[in-house]
Every structure is written in C-alpha cells, then in structure tokens.
C-alpha cells in the first residue's frame, strides 16, 4: 500500500494550503470592516491597481473586440447571418471576455507586483516592524489592496467592455462594410442590463481573488530573493487558475448550467 502514501501526502498538503488560505482570507476580510482604516493607502492602491492597468486592459480589449468581429463574420457569413455579429461581439465582451481577459491581464500585472512587494517586506522584516509600531499588518498592507482590487476591477471591466465593443464596431464598419448606424442599433437591441451587471460582479470577484492571492503568497514568502520570486509566480498562476475556475462557477450560478 506504500504507493498510496505519496498521493495522501499531496492531498493533505493541498488541504493544509487551502485551510491556510481560507483562514488568511477570513482574517483579512474581518479587518476590512473594523477601524482604523488607512484611506490614503486605499487611494494609492486604487491608482496602482486600477489607473495604471488601464493601458494594458484597453489594448487587450480593443484587439479582442476586433478579432471577435472578424472571426464571427467568417462563421456567420456562411449562414447569411452577418447581422448577428454586433450581438455576438457585445454579449461576448460584457459577459465573458471583458471580465476574464481584464482579470487575467491584471493578475499578471498586479498580482505579481503585490506578491513581490509584500514578499520583500516579509523577508526584510518590515512586516514584523509594522507590528512593533502599533500597526496591524493586515489593516495596513492587505486591506487597502483587497478593497482597491474589488473596487477598481469592475471599473476596468466597464472600460474594457466599451473599448471592446468599439473595436468590433471599427472592424465591422471599416473592413466588413457594415452600416455604422445599423451596427450600433443591433448592438443595443439585444443587450440587457443583466449582461453587463453579471460581468461587473465577476470583475469584483476576480479583483478580490487577484489581490488576495498576491497578498497571501507575499505574506507567507520566505527565504530571500528566491522566495519572493516564487511568491510572485505562485500569485500569478494561482490567481489565473482561480479566475478561470470561478468564472465557470459564476456563469453557472447566473445563467444556469
């Protein structure tokens, strides 16, 4: 039965890691609602996480919208259903691609940065120093990042939705010879508020996951430069996987299996 031991070890390690993560998340969230609050830190993190992610999210969105229009044209033209392109673009962007792609881009940009910064603070004893200076590290370091992530990701996704739809519009009107007014009318016709709202809810969840994984891996990093590097990698990989997995679960919850 010895061959079962390694499997069991991996499974137990997985459970331990999950438990630690859930405990970390619970403590962090509990500090979100208890004073003192560090308003300036929250503002600074919103600029770091939200504002500075605009270019990369915008670029991702515009190319995605453009390629969506091109590819769906290829398919729908064979069925003489070109008029569906506008609807396909706007629904794909708002429901799925806007939140998921913005989430993945922010995970790469912000998740790694958070893990590296918090991890460096851990290995240089700055987090211990905070505690000796009457400052709770969760409140000072973790809470501002979590709040900024949850607050700014929906805004980023809203911007991504608009830019993505514009990308589809530009390709359709300029390369595929659509009538501009007609394309816009078709875009609006089948779009419902729920399509956008569910996307924004997803974005808030992704914002939480990205910042949580960045903080968690940074907070528990050890062993100098190598440890910080591993923390950054783990933060990006785990938050990307969690984004894709939770996206499926959220879609199921919103729209049924």
């Amino acid at each position: 039965m010895n061959f079962l031991a390694p499997i069991g070890r991996v499974f137990i390690a997985f459970l331990v890691a999950t438990g630690r993560l859930v405990a970390f998340a619970a403590v962090s969230v509990s500090h979100c609602v208890r004073p003192p609050f560090y308003g300036r830190s929250i503002g600074r993190q919103m600029i770091q996480i939200g504002y500075f992610s605009l270019p990369v999210v915008g670029l991702t969105a515009i190319f995605t919208g453009m390629v969506l229009a091109l590819q769906s044209y290829t398919g729908f033209a064979r069925l003489n259903a070109e008029s569906a392109i506008a609807t396909v673009v706007v629904l794909s962007m708002t429901r799925e691609l806007g939140p998921v792609l913005a989430g993945l881009m922010v995970a790469g940009r912000v998740g790694a940065a958070i893990a590296a910064e918090v991890g460096t603070m851990r290995v240089t004893e700055q987090i211990d120093a905070l505690a000796t200076l009457s400052t709770n590290p969760y409140k000072y370091l973790i809470v501002p990042r979590l709040i900024a992530g949850v607050a700014t990701l929906p805004i980023l996704v809203l911007v991504a939705d608009i830019i993505g739809v514009f990308g589809g519009y530009a390709v359709s009107v300029h390369s595929l010879d659509f009538n501009a007014a007609n394309y816009l009318k078709l875009t609006w016709e089948f779009l419902q508020p729920l399509d956008v709202i569910t996307g924004l809810v997803k974005a808030a969840v992704f914002g939480f996951l990205i910042t949580l994984m960045g903080c968690y891996h940074g907070f528990h990093s050890r062993g100098g430069a190598q440890g910080v590097g591993a923390a950054a990698t783990n933060a990006v990989v785990s938050s990307s996987v969690l984004i894709l997995a939770s996206n499926y679960m959220l879609t199921t919850a919103f729209f049924g299996a």
Binding site: M121, T124, E125, Q126, D128, A129, A131, T132, S134
Partner: peptide
C-alpha cells in the same frame, strides 16, 4: 507590545 520598541537586524525601514 506598544511598550516595546525594536531595532531590527536589517533595519527593516519602510
């Protein structure tokens, strides 16, 4: 613990 000040080995300045 607020009664205690600490000088860290690597200084640990922010």
């Amino acid at each position: 613990t607020a009664k205690i000040g600490m000088l860290f080995q690597g200084s640990a300045l922010f």
